[in-house]
Design a protein around this nucleic acid. Structure first.
Lengths: 94, 94
DNA sequence: TTAATATGTCGCCGAACGCTGACATACTAT
DNA sequence: ATAGTATGTCAGCGTTCGGCGACATATTAA
């Protein structure tokens, strides 16, 4: 599933926590945060600490991955233009 | 690529930023954060705000996803045990 | 080498964090 | 109904954030 927002993270976490039959308090203990913090992430709090969020995912065995593809922004040549004059200048100097 | 730590996030961001030939300053402007903040995430600062990190990934067209699989914690029956007495009790009452 | 960019680090600031503890309101099971 | 559990929210507190501006140190270009 594609993740774009903090809320989506929260929903995934909540889902997995329930699958695991853990209360917020139990999960909090395992992750090493307060129960209120769990409430926050699950509700999509955007300013949650990245590290704690990752820690939570790890505890719940939720694996996160980035696609290393190339979705070109729009349409443009990716070929590097060459400044021929600069090349010549550089060649002269050595 | 699997992401487990804030540092891994940082490395991916840095990589993609360079592919896009953006300076930290330019990326910062696009994301709407300070240049110092970019320095922080790229170095794996664990307490970076989740929302800003996601915003950065979006700007760089880095897509994030969670695997909805089931990597069983170890080995145990996932079959729910049934409390037969409880069921009978419940049936009596209605 | 020299100049220009890019990157990393510092201190100061107001704002928000995450924690504890306490309540209030669901939800469940008996 | 009623107790037990789960969840959401509040205030108060010390800590850290992320922004700004200023430097110091790479890295790159001429």
């Amino acid at each position: 599933m594609r993740i774009r927002t903090p809320l989506e993270f929260g929903l995934v976490i909540r889902e997995k926590r329930r699958q695991r039959k853990l209360s917020q308090a139990e999960l909090a203990r395992k992750v090493g945060v307060s129960r209120q913090w769990i409430v926050g992430v699950e509700r999509g709090k955007s300013r949650s600490e990245l590290g704690l969020v990752l820690q939570t995912l790890n505890v719940l065995d939720i694996s996160l991955s980035v696609d290393v593809e190339r979705p070109p922004p729009a349409s443009d040549a990716t070929i590097e233009p060459v400044d021929i004059d600069a090349v010549i200048e550089a060649a002269k100097r050595r």
